[in-house]
């Protein structure tokens, strides 16, 4: 069996991966086409009667102000995926740059980057995001992605550094070095492809982490201004008495979606780990 076929063979038989990616696909589809089906804009006061439970007109019911929950939900879902993709992607990228540089170069650069990583690791991400976000009066979704990406990288950098360290002394890397290849090229051509599976796992975890961080920021009111998000839906629900009024349709969908998406990502992560790592597979 060839290596690629083998990975595919096990991938198609791995329940954790299949269920996880299935859930992600469903929500992705919902985020993609959902807004086209929404009859109202997220912030429109659609229902003159105010809050109402789900009905044929308002599929997910309406909020205290009569806003359409379905419309908020699918638009928020879209924002969630964008944050995961861009924020998680940026976090992975920064982690890769710092991890590769520290792990491949070693020496004094490694010492400095390592100390820096440890510092950023100790500062609670949220606290920094908080102080930045609080001073910016207008915040866009892209900015949120940027903040999250730039603060979430430390553990990824650490993990990638350790992996690079162990690959650095392998024969094929030595060979590339002897043949006069530039360090950047060695990392790109020889080291990164050899830890591709690992990088995929890092990205998935960053993706999930970015979604949770964004939900927290949105919930305390530091998310994008003038845009809907799942975290903001939950904040409104709490602030406008959805709990005492028993308006479950307002706060259940956003949290459930986040839990399902992040849970599905974790499940994919475990599944992929089993596929990439034959040691876990052959039991």
């Amino acid at each position: 069996m060839k290596k690629r076929n083998e990975v595919l063979y096990f991938a198609l038989r791995n329940k954790k991966l299949l269920i996880g990616s299935g859930i992600i696909l469903i929500f992705l589809l919902l985020a993609w086409v959902g807004p086209a089906f929404a009859k109202y804009k997220p912030f429109d006061y659609a229902n003159p009667l105010g809050a109402e439970p789900p009905s044929t007109e308002y599929w997910f019911g309406t909020t205290f102000f009569g806003q359409d929950v379905f419309s908020q939900f699918v638009n928020g879902l879209r924002a969630t995926f964008i944050v995961g993709l861009l924020g998680g992607g940026l976090g992975t990228l920064v982690g890769m740059i710092i991890g590769f540089a520290a792990g491949y170069r070693g020496g004094i650069l490694d010492e400095i980057l390592n100390a820096f990583t440890n510092i950023v690791l100790v500062i609670p991400t949220l606290a920094v995001l908080l102080i930045i976000a609080a001073y910016l009066q207008v915040r866009s979704l892209l900015m949120e992605c940027l903040f999250i990406g730039l603060t979430a990288w430390p553990w990824a950098a650490r993990a990638i550094r350790a992996q690079t360290f162990s690959l650095r002394t392998r024969d094929f890397v030595d060979l590339a070095r002897l043949s006069g290849m530039k360090p950047y090229k060695i990392v790109r051509r020889e080291i990164a492809p050899n830890m591709m599976s690992y990088l995929v796992l890092v990205f998935i975890l960053q993706f999930g982490g970015a979604i949770l961080t964004a939900a927290t920021l949105d919930f305390i009111g530091l998310g994008p201004t003038n845009a809907i998000s799942l975290g903001l839906m939950m904040q409104y629900a709490v602030l406008w008495g959805a709990l005492p009024l028993g308006m479950w349709w307002w706060f259940v969908p956003p949290g459930l979606a986040i839990t399902a998406i992040v849970g599905a990502l974790y499940s994919m992560n475990v599944g992929l780990d089993e596929i990439f790592n034959p040691k876990l597979r052959e039991m």
Binding site: G208, L212, A215, T216, F219, F251, G255, T259, V262
Partner: peptide, 12 residues
């Protein structure tokens, strides 16, 4: 549980 956002479990 680890995938659940803190505030959502609190709300529930």
């Amino acid at each position: 549980l680890t995938a659940t956002p803190y505030m959502w479990l609190g709300i529930l």
